[in-house]
Write a protein that binds this DNA or RNA. Sequence first.
DNA 1: CTACAATATGAGTTATAGCTCATATTATTG
DNA 2: CAATAATATGAGCTATAACTCATATTGTAG
Lengths: 203, 203
Amino acid sequence: MPRKTRTTPRKLPQQDRSKMTVDAILIAAAHILTEDGYDTASTNRIAERAGVSIGSLYQYFPNKEAIMTAVRERHTNEMAEIVESAVSQTAQQSLEVALHELVKACIAAHRVDPNLHQVLHEQVPRLNQSSAEAKILLLLREFLIQRHHEVQAQNLELTVFILERTIESLVHAAVIEYPKFLQENQLEKELTRLLLSFLSRPV
Amino acid sequence: MPRKTRTTPRKLPQQDRSKMTVDAILIAAAHILTEDGYDTASTNRIAERAGVSIGSLYQYFPNKEAIMTAVRERHTNEMAEIVESAVSQTAQQSLEVALHELVKACIAAHRVDPNLHQVLHEQVPRLNQSSAEAKILLLLREFLIQRHHEVQAQNLELTVFILERTIESLVHAAVIEYPKFLQENQLEKELTRLLLSFLSRPV
DNA sequence: CTACAATATGAGTTATAGCTCATATTATTG
DNA sequence: CAATAATATGAGCTATAACTCATATTGTAG
């Protein structure tokens, strides 16, 4: 089905000054979201905080939703880069070590901006899933394929799904709701153990 | 910190007819939420759909948030009852069987009203966590304590956390996004295996 | 039957949000 | 240094949402 509202910019910023404008808008939006939540993040307030007129805002974003989508995209990409970089460095490692690194990277990624992450997750209406999320799925898929000799996975797609959701949900919930579980690497260890026992072929 | 807006009714319905009114409002709200989402669920529309005047609505709910809280509470309780009933019937069973029943019950609970569940989760602003959710956590805690002889859990609280979040997130995501994983009990089996290998004491 | 409490009504108030558009300013290009 | 394109401005339009309140109707108790 066709999207009802576009989320792509109506104009692409070409000169430097307009890129600054777009940047300021996204930063202001993120700040307001983390400080006061989605409800109070009106487009007028975002423009004001960005030091930009409301008219300028609507030069580059067709509607409020487009701003939210851009904020989410930026943030998700930042997180994805951390995970990607970590995974790419574990190519030669054992499953156990690699899983541990993966888990650590996910925790680090969630620490980029936990408050923004929470608001994006709980308050900002999500329509289309971000491209960065799809990238993560592909990454994990590769991760498993490369280790197919030590991994138990009859149904690859299902295993990727379980791997991704389990890490994301546990790390996310811990960072936001139970930071104490992150002390002394408790969650990190238990989560690695959980995944390792699930993925390892029985000996 | 004190809540800024109350979610408790301003009047308690006493006669039967007012109970009907409250009921009609909650049912209408749930229908609109599942059909058109949170954004279009205005209080006026809810009242109209319920066949009740907007004034009556505000006799029993101090604000829109209170309606949403009530809808969530109802739905969460329905789900919690299914899980509770299943768990209470596995007291004499082995860890493996009991876990399997638990997982099956969670899947059944998510099938009560998947669309409403999704909207409540993704769109409706959540302020206080529902009491039914807390009940589930206690339930799982008991579940583990009763089986302490066959369960590995140094940190009980952390283990409850992992157990609860893993089941909820995987079942939820599957019901909403990947119903195909529910075919032939695929998820049910894999999820049980995941949890069993995590909780079992090494032999 | 009467008096009072509970319940129901809906037009109207208030507030604010998203967004437009005519116009002004700044940059680029040839 | 024109001429044109890119960018910026903000007062104000439109729409709709949450919520109130004076009043009417229905139930209940003595």
